[in-house]
Structure formats: C-alpha cells, structure tokens
Design a binder for these strands. Structure first.
Lengths: 226, 226
DNA sequence: CGGGTGATTGAGCCCGCTCAACTCTCGTGG
DNA sequence: CCACGAGAGTTGAGCGGGCTCAATCACCCG
C-alpha cells in the first residue's frame, strides 16, 4: 500500500486527516499542473505493458494496482487513496495495471514534464526518491505479510491499515470488496470472509453491512502483534 | 532481489557477466570513496532498528536482508551479490537486518556523504531514484510470487533468477542454504527440498552436491510460465 | 416482490507444514 | 586411513490451514 500525502474535498474515501493541498499541482511544484479526469467504478486506468505516459494523483476515490498471471491469478500491490500518487515507471511501459475501485477523480501529469522538472530541480528529484523509497517500504512490509503471516493476521493487519488511512476512532468504510481484499492479501475471498467472521465472533470488530467495520483496535492489534 | 550493477574480481560468487567497475567508488561518482570491510559467514552487518549510518556495496560474497517477527518467523527480502548496493533508508533506522550469507567483502559509504552529493548533483540524485525504483520492481515481483504462486513455481522461479544472476549456460552454484531459500520464498526448507527433488525427477535439473544445480532452462521455465 | 450481485457459511480435499528418521558430506582427530 | 560427529539435506507419515465447490443469505435496485 502507499499513502502519505493527501488532498481533501467533499467526496467519499477522502482521508479525513488530510491537509488541503493546492488543487491541480503536484506536491509543492507549481510548474506542474495536472489535468482532471474521472474514471467509473471498475474502469481501467492503464494496463500492464501499456506505454507509460502519465503519472496520476488521486483526488477522490480509490485505485488498485495489480499484476495478473496468464491463468487469471491476480496480485494487488496497493490501494491508492486521495492524495496518493501512482503510475511511476523507470521503463516506458507500465509493469502493473491500474483500475478504479470506485468512481475516482484523478489528476494526470505528463511523465516527461515531471522528468524535466526532476532533471533541473534537485529538490523535486529528492522528493521522487523519497516517494519511491516509501513505496519500497510498503512493498517490503507487504512481502512479509504475504510470506510469513497467517490468514487471520493478514486480515487483521489489513483492517488496521485501512482504519488508519481511511477511518477514525476505529471505524472504517471499506471501499473495496472481499475479492479485492483477498487478492491484496494472497488469499481467497472465502477465507477473507471467514477471518472477518471470526474476528467478529471474537468481539474484535463489529459490522454494519459488509463494508462498514468498527474495530476494537486493542483486540485486532493483538492478533497482528509485532 | 536486487542486482543490476556489478563489479568483478577473483573471489567466489562474483557475477561472471559483470563489467569491471573502478574500485572503491560508488557507481560513477568519483568523489565517493568506500572503505573496504569484510564480514565472516553468517555475521550480522546491521540489525533491524539500528541507526543507519552507511550504505554498502558488495565487492564479493552474498548478503541477505530480512525482517523477523517476534516469534522467529523470518522473511528474506533479497540476496545482494557482487556489485549490488544495499542499506538505503529514508529514516534514521534500518528497517531490515543484513547478514553475510558467505564471507563477504563490502565497501562502506557514509550515508551523509551520499546525501550531500545527491543534494548537489541532479545526476546522482536521479541514479538514486532509479535504484529505488528497481528495488521496488523487484519487491513487487517478489510479492506476486509470495501471494499467488505455488511452491514449485516459486522454487523454479528462484532457480531461474539465480542462474541468471550468478550462473551461465544453465549452471549455478547456490551460495545460500535451503533455509535461506525457504525464507526468501515463504516456504519451509523441507518444501524447498521436495520441490528441488521433484524438478530433479522431472528431469528439469541435475544436481552435483546440494548446491550446484544444472538447469534445463526450457523445462524449468515452463514451470514458471508467465 | 423478484432478480442480481456480493457476502457468508458449509463440506470435503489437498498443498504445504510439522515432526521425525535417515542420509550425505565434510572436517577432525585418533 | 578410517571412525566419528556435526551440520545440512532428503525423505516419510500424518496433520491442518486455507482452497474448492456449492448452497444459502443479505442487500440493493428494479
């Protein structure tokens, strides 16, 4: 997962703890103006292998980035929320695909423009490095989860993370379905559902509908432990 | 895993396809001179949580970077071979530990020096970004493997990668033991052993000793497929 | 109300884990 | 030169966590 910067407006799935950023510019780089664009729920933003022309910032909504194998197995690498940037590449092609989890507004920045700025401006260049390193940290944490955690731990860790990014005081409205959660956690959707049910019957969380989750942070946290 | 640059000398585990780099300097940055240091087999280079003072380049040998959970479960994130850089952090503390898999010679570069160069030199800064992005790509590939691949596919993919990085014409001498392979692949060492045995009886590879592996690249590749 | 999608729950199976025995290699010393 | 032991690797038997397949349930929108 990757989330750190944030931008706010009235739309759903906006991080409530976000500080308002100046609209349409990238980070604090006034010479970079993004073009607004909107994707519908489930719509593809770019596909694996496609030419990488833009970098995106989420204004509102949620985007998932993923890889899929020939036989359909899918691994979601991250969910990008309001304020998050995604779509960076070193090569000319996207190595992941990106799709809108819900209706999502983004800003598009031309990749070449960003590169031009970075090749003149050390400050901007430094910020790009920081961004890549954060994503790397997230990816390593994700690998630990996928390689060495049980199903229950994965689900608990996921809920804790989403609560931190989207929720407040233990309550979250999950923007994505069980299938997406499963593909992020390296599980099946049935297993995700069972784990949530188990946390429920252990009184570690309460549900209203399938999406709205109220966590007992202490108990759920104790499942993850370390 | 992360490997891209390389340096050569007579020691074991040196990538045979490496082009010679000027000794003691980082990448092509003549103002950065590294201090040579040697670690014995199994020796810790730095621990998780320790202050991050240096960045390292492997001259010869192999280093593993890993995270371990409270109960001892360990996830290895990468093996660093001759020429590879490791030890970069954004914060002041290491988020992983690093240990020498075999006796390993490294060059140490002061982190603050690198940061100083990067804050003056856009070129160097750009190279740091590239490096981080490569690591990110590796980490994402790793996550796909951990989340969505079977044991046999993981082992096959691992052997293919190691052959590419260390071997030639299908033959590799694995520098790490089964336990390290298992902790990299999110498996147990018994499962790794069984998968290698299976590939052996499927005539996809030949062994001489446990470490020297001769791959039938076509057959092993067919196991990974995509 | 009925249809459709997404979530939950159940039953049974299988892949990979656990525990344990055995083998192989290699270094060391009698 | 062989005996021995230690560490690493292999193999076997049995278990169990998570998967598969399938039925049921909940919740929207008509």
């Amino acid at each position: 997962m990757s989330a750190r910067t944030a931008n706010t407006d009235g739309a759903p799935w906006v991080d409530p703890r976000a500080e308002p950023a100046e609209p349409r510019t990238l980070a604090s780089c006034p010479e970079l103006i993004g073009s607004p664009y909107t994707y519908g729920q489930g719509e593809e933003i770019y596909g694996e292998g496609e030419e990488s022309e833009f970098v995106y910032r989420v204004v509102s909504g949620v985007v998932r980035t993923a890889k899929v194998l020939g036989d359909g197995r899918r691994q979601i690498h991250g969910f990008h929320l309001a304020g998050d940037l995604f779509g960076f590449e070193t090569s000319n092609a996207h190595r992941l695909n990106a799709e809108a989890v819900v209706a999502t507004r983004v800003l598009l920045f031309r990749r070449r423009q960003i590169e031009a700025v970075a090749s003149r401006n050390v400050e901007a260049s430094r910020r790009l490095w920081d961004l890549a390193m954060r994503s790397l940290e997230d990816a390593e944490e994700h690998a630990l989860l996928l390689g060495r955690r049980t199903a229950l731990e994965r689900v608990a860790a996921f809920l804790m993370t989403m609560e931190k990014r989207l929720g407040g005081s233990g309550s979250v409205e999950l923007p994505m379905g069980r299938r997406d959660i499963a593909d992020y956690l390296g599980l099946t959707l049935e297993t995700v559902s069972r784990c949530i049910s188990q946390l429920h019957s252990d009184r570690a969380l309460a549900l209203s509908g399938a999406r709205r989750v109220m966590l007992d942070l202490g108990r759920v946290g104790r499942v993850v432990e370390e």
